[in-house]
Every structure is written in C-alpha cells, then in structure tokens.
Write a protein that binds this DNA or RNA. Structure first.
Lengths: 121, 121
DNA sequence: TTCTTTGTTCCGTATTTACGAACTATTGAA
DNA sequence: TTCAATAGTTCGTAAATACGGAACAAAGAA
C-alpha cells in the first residue's frame, strides 16, 4: 500500500479547497474533523447527516479532502487518524477555512441535515 | 427565451457557492464582477486568465454563477448585465464571499494565471 | 426586412463521480 | 504460524456532469 499523498501547503489551491468542500458529505466530514479536538478515524463518518455512506465512497471522500490539502491522514495501527491542516492553511489563505466552516455551521443550524444536494437548475 | 432564474437568498447554499467558485474560470469571472463598479456583460470574459473561453461555455458559467446565487443577470438591450449579489450574501453568510475573493486574489498574485486546473491526484 | 451583436440551447463526446466486489494491511487470538 | 476480524483502498462499470461546436433566439441598426 503506497504512502498517502499530501500536497505541500504552497501547492494548495483555492479552487481545490472549494471543490473538495462543495460536496455536502465532504464539508460535513471536514467540519466534524475541525470541530473535534482528537483526531478522527474514517469510520466515524459512516453515517453523516442522517445518511449512510458506503465505505468505498467514504474512502474517496477522505482522499479528496487529503489531496485538496485540507486534512492530514496518518495510519495508526489498523486505523487512520485524520486531523485538519487549518493552521497551515490559515497562513496561506487567512480567514478562508474559518469562513467556510462558519457558513456551513450557520446553514446546518438553519436547516438541519436535509440530505441537501448542491443547488442545481 | 424564458426568463433567467435567480434563487432567493435563503435558498442559496454553501455547497452551491463553493461548487460554483471551484472552477478557475468561474472564480476569475466572479472576481472580475465583484472587483468592478459597473456591471459587466458576458463577452467581457471571452478571454479569462490568458485563455479563450467558447461562448457556449461562457454562457454555462454565467448560468452556474447565477443559479448558485452569486450574481444577478439582467438583460439590457442586446446584452446582459451582471452584478454580484455580495450584499445579500453577506447577510446570509457573513465573511464568506469576502474570504474567497481575497484568497483568490492572493493566489493570483502569487502565481499569475497559470491556466490552473483544480488540484487532482 | 435584413444584418449584426450578444447570448442561449441542443446534443454528441469526454471527464468525473458513485458504489459494490475484491483486495491489502495490521492486529490479536488460537 | 495461521486464522479471523477490523479498517481502509482499489478496480470496474454505470450514472451524472461538463465542454464546446452548430444552430437558434432576441434586440437594435440600417
């Protein structure tokens, strides 16, 4: 199993961050990771906003977050520990992550987990 | 030609905004609209970051921005005038748009228009 | 009317995403 | 060791999205 790829913070792009967080499941996962003090393993998110996520899909979501530079994943024994890279990202794009997480929290509070899909035509 | 659809500000979602701005061309267009005082027509963006955009694609990009709630488009004679909905959005998601536009500006300054694609594996 | 400009829609192709099945890695127990 | 259990990844293919050329629509000018 090849080692996990994590982009250098200087290679992280705004577009990459926005794309990773433009998925309702991924932004919920990321918010969960940011909001918790201890690192989270993937299976903690097999259920997100009342919906079940297949584990292969979950794995892809974590990969997307990782490769966008949003989280750092580290194997510890049989499981994976995920932490956010907020501190690094804050230096590169001050205020960006905080604003997104805050907006997401606002929205969740207003209409809790409506299995939302991105607004489409 | 059916009238253009603009979502109510309360129907705007974080995911929708992030998705719309996760495309390098769209975020550049939106930054252009936000950054200019007077309203911009679509053709002002036939060239974005040194690359030519086909007009059908451009039309789709404007539609995406519109339906995400980021801009308001109004026909004036033969052309379309586009303005940002920043003021409304600021009420719903304080600081969000500003943080994204600022991050985009920072990134553009650091590495001007590298025909960037979203960071992928 | 006809021409020009601006933008939209249609539609075939290409890219991306989702998820089940099969697989790999690590730990612990027998 | 060997076996089983747990945690997560990869692969294959189907479904959904995006791109862009060609044709179309709307408005103004001549």
């Amino acid at each position: 199993m090849r080692p996990l790829f994590h982009p250098a913070v200087d290679d992280v792009t705004v577009e990459g961050i926005l794309h990773a967080l433009s998925d309702p499941v991924r932004v919920a996962i990321f918010a969960g990771i940011v909001g918790s003090q201890c690192s989270q393993n993937c299976s903690a998110f097999l259920k997100v906003s009342e919906q079940d996520i297949p584990k292969s899909t979950l794995s892809q979501h974590f990969k997307a977050l990782r490769e966008a530079g949003l989280i750092r994943s580290e194997r510890r024994g049989v499981e994976m520990h995920n932490i956010s890279r907020c501190a690094e990202l804050e230096k590169r794009f001050p205020g960006l992550i905080a604003a997104i997480v805050k907006a997401h929290a606002l929205q969740s509070r207003a209409s809790p987990s409506p299995k939302r899909k991105r607004t489409r035509e």
